[in-house]
């Protein structure tokens, strides 16, 4: 075990090279719907229990199924209304289980990125070869079902190994060269994209995916009232919009169709989307678009600035 993660360097938020988004936007805004499949009877993982009860864990399974049966369409209708294309963090087994949802995402040119096979299969305890196989399966599934060269990763149920990012980058290179496997959503250390070092030396970055704004964290961990979630989202946006005048920022709303789309909660998301999309300086983007723009225009400058400031230079 390592004392520190060691995949990115300390890089202070102040005085960074100016980040410029297309058309002078201040905030690159993206919505990342997690579309997940949880198994009713998952195999045991020695390091983490999938459900608090013995299988069948009806309460936990059923509400997540609600997300796909009922919630997804509500959320999709809202994103359509505000001209937002989702960047889907996908349990890729959903391509087999619920291809109708995948088709709707494709028709809208939504991005699909890997969130593992099932959200009840954890990375913990996997050998490197096993994790590589799982990552490859996921990227190949997305490609087979949608033709997309998977660019991003959010580890299943946020379960990681020390090698997760390396393996994702490597499998991406093997399958798609530089066109796949180049950003991660697993790091929560910044409000701007940052370079991340991976074993194969690839140009690889982190795209901010906020756990603080993540509906599941908000509703189930922090137990926030629905209408207050709307307030939090607006405040979060306001500050990033203000700071974005100086240098571009990223705001992500990670969602789960079984949380945001409940009838007593969906208004909070709608209010926030209405508010955010009502601002001129907002770039409605996907995770991949943000990553590609950053890699093309800002990655090299960032690497140089990080190198320059490593020793404490102002």
């Amino acid at each position: 075990m390592k004392e520190s993660l060691g995949v990115y360097d300390y890089w202070p938020y102040e005085d960074r090279p100016k980040l410029e988004w297309p058309n002078g936007a201040r905030v690159a805004f993206w919505v990342a719907p997690n579309i997940e499949f949880y198994e009713l009877d998952p195999p045991d993982n020695p390091h983490r229990k999938a459900w608090p009860q013995p299988s069948p864990a009806v309460p936990g399974y059923a509400i997540r199924d609600y997300g796909n049966r009922v919630g997804h369409r509500r959320q999709m209708a809202l994103l359509d209304k505000y001209g937002i294309r989702g960047s889907v963090s996908l349990s890729v087994a959903l391509c087999e289980h619920h291809p109708e949802i995948i088709d709707m995402c494709r028709e809208r040119d939504w991005e699909l990125f890997s969130h593992g096979i099932y959200n009840t299969r954890y990375t913990y305890g996997m050998s490197e070869a096993q994790e590589r196989t799982m990552i490859r399966d996921a990227m190949e599934s997305i490609h087979r079902h949608t033709g997309q060269k998977c660019a991003g990763y959010l580890a299943p149920a946020l379960s990681h190994s020390e090698r997760t990012l390396d393996l994702f980058a490597e499998v991406g290179s093997e399958l798609f060269g530089d066109e796949g496997g180049f950003y991660t959503c697993d790091l929560f250390h910044d409000d701007q994209p940052t370079p991340v070092s991976v074993r194969n030396g690839k140009r690889f970055i982190s795209v901010p995916y906020s756990l603080e704004m993540n509906d599941t964290i908000v509703y189930t961990v922090n137990k926030v009232e629905p209408r207050h979630y709307a307030t939090m989202l607006k405040r979060h946006f306001d500050r990033l919009y203000e700071e974005g005048a100086e240098s571009g920022t990223v705001m992500c709303i990670p969602t789960h169709n079984y949380q945001v789309s409940c009838p007593h909660r969906i208004k909070a998301l709608e209010e926030a989307l209405e508010y955010i999309t009502g601002h001129d300086g907002v770039w409605l983007a996907t995770g991949r678009e943000i990553a590609e723009h950053y890699l093309a225009h800002h990655y090299d400058t960032a690497v140089a600035d990080i190198e320059r400031r490593k020793g404490g230079a102002q």
Partner: peptide
Amino acid sequence: MSLDDRYFEYPWRRHGYDHDRYDWTMLA
């Protein structure tokens, strides 16, 4: 360190659900 091979088998990875109790249909 590794997991049992069964952890990488997906016997229910098919159209619909991983059980037969009800049909997969979206409410809408």
